[in-house]
Write a protein that binds this DNA or RNA. Sequence first.
DNA 1: TTGTAGGCGTTATCAT
DNA 2: ATGATAACGCCTACAA
Lengths: 345, 345
Amino acid sequence: MPRSNPNPRLEDVARAAGVSLATASRALSEPGMVRADTRGRVEQAAAMLGYVPHGAARALATSRTRTIGAVFPPVDNPIFAGATHALAQELAAAGYTMLLASYDYDLDDELAAVRALVGRGADGMVVVGLDHRPETLAVLERAGVPWEITWSLDESGRHHCIGFSHRGASIRVAQHLLDLGHREIAVIAGDTKRNDRARERLAGVKDALAARGVKLPPKRVIEVDFSVANGRAGFAKLLERAPGFTAVIGGNDPLAIGALFECRDRGIDVPGQMSIAGFDDIELAGELAPGLTTVRVPSAEIGREAGRRLLARLAGKAVPRIKEMPAPLVVRGTTGPPPKKGRLK
Amino acid sequence: MPRSNPNPRLEDVARAAGVSLATASRALSEPGMVRADTRGRVEQAAAMLGYVPHGAARALATSRTRTIGAVFPPVDNPIFAGATHALAQELAAAGYTMLLASYDYDLDDELAAVRALVGRGADGMVVVGLDHRPETLAVLERAGVPWEITWSLDESGRHHCIGFSHRGASIRVAQHLLDLGHREIAVIAGDTKRNDRARERLAGVKDALAARGVKLPPKRVIEVDFSVANGRAGFAKLLERAPGFTAVIGGNDPLAIGALFECRDRGIDVPGQMSIAGFDDIELAGELAPGLTTVRVPSAEIGREAGRRLLARLAGKAVPRIKEMPAPLVVRGTTGPPPKKGRLK
DNA sequence: TTGTAGGCGTTATCAT
DNA sequence: ATGATAACGCCTACAA
């Protein structure tokens, strides 16, 4: 029975070039080890036949796939999208390919995805944040591939990570508002059960207020999924259940922007009557008028740098276990002093 | 020499379960072909050892990687991000994994990415739009894998595709403005050299205006890369170089939103003095006040459906070569009749 | 229902 | 510098 698969194999190339299989292999992957004219013949034969190396076969022989797995929360969140793009570019430039899985904050789904990508032979992995099933880390460790935690910093120092302190950044936001004179503050947080970034951001606000003896009553905190619509709704609910605050902090920019829109629709002046701050610094934050005060999160840089670190480790280089990225407060127009007298409504 | 790689192989599982390699293999991949108790022993042994099938070996033996390659323009564009997420989810549910490459509208980069993913053994491929190097299509065809064009419709009927007519949708936008009474219209288009979607959208406006005998002078058209900032800048430039228009059409929503913001900053009333329409219907479009009139592009559905079609074709089912998705005009508050008399400025 | 054995396309270790 | 050949881990006729 003739080969049903028409794709040429290395053996075909070797025959066409009149050399052995081994020589053909070397000519293509270790050019230095073969005489120039032999190499030329092989290359020509390969080009003629349209030879493309068979990835799986190569992977089986080398136990290397030149593939990096990334398991991200919804990539349709703009910040993850930016990181994904940057990571993909960085890897492509080095001849690596990205295996991407995107999960909706369900840690069991994340585990399944990690398993799948490791099974596909990813040479390295990147995950997001600190919240994982214990089994997820076990799979990663057992696989023996280098892996990176992104966005968050692993305080235990056990794992390689690149990110920043969400709590610290959040403290800067809250302090900024406190410094402006706000004492009645509300928070529209992300879902703190499902991800450590949202949890740490909320904790940061609490820390900062507590440090100055300012209270954050539970009624002034609401948790929702990230979206502009939920920012609007969350703000409306806060206003209804615990009015009297002069500033609101959003768990991310879309939430803050939702609050901003809601204010606009209700005729609440920002920042005259209400100050608003976000987190992430998506493009829109700077284009609004007034611009949104927020924390600049270097998402593309995190993606790119995660790729670089992984590639370096694969090349046998040592990289510092923990890489902290800057996440500065960006003060724009949505924050200002609280209204002089009287409270909202 | 003992095996240096500690990962258990199927052989180890078989030994632990006291069955042959073949039985172990069948127990895990074709459960129906093995007696229940045998299968149980194998599954238990696999779980105990933490066995994970070796993707490359499996791929080599079956010439199937259970992997789908996607080559997308910048996934940090929100609409591609949504499609990426949906596609990844759809594939994961079927036990497939996504190989993702993201390029910056450079068709040579796209070709390289397609080559890479095909070389990695992708069982199917998805690309975006109609603009490709001829070689790209050749690689795809020669690979013999099913592939789908997304976003655009291939009029030649030669290739499988899922999308909609950008020209048609754009015509609806322009007609809407004409129906409102606008005759002086400007366009902030995307880069028409680099992608057919931007080109077709612009062509649609031209078609619609021409059909009613309305001119679109070159000065009223500007081309920029997609971003809110460029929408602002583009609008400002149009105002400066060809004032007097009463409506502007953005090549996508971020561009239109940029124009909207610029109007707001300049005190130009929307839609009183200026009507604005976009394309894509990103979340923000509906949250703005007034809401942005735009075309709803079902990006997540396109991603999901592309995955479904590919999986169906891999399963040997026939699917219609061309799948048209709806892309309805969504009329919101940013469009209205042109000002009664006098022109802007 | 289960086991035996050959093959998938490369790389890498030996000789030569 | 080049050639022969044994892995690499799994699947799948074919045989029992």
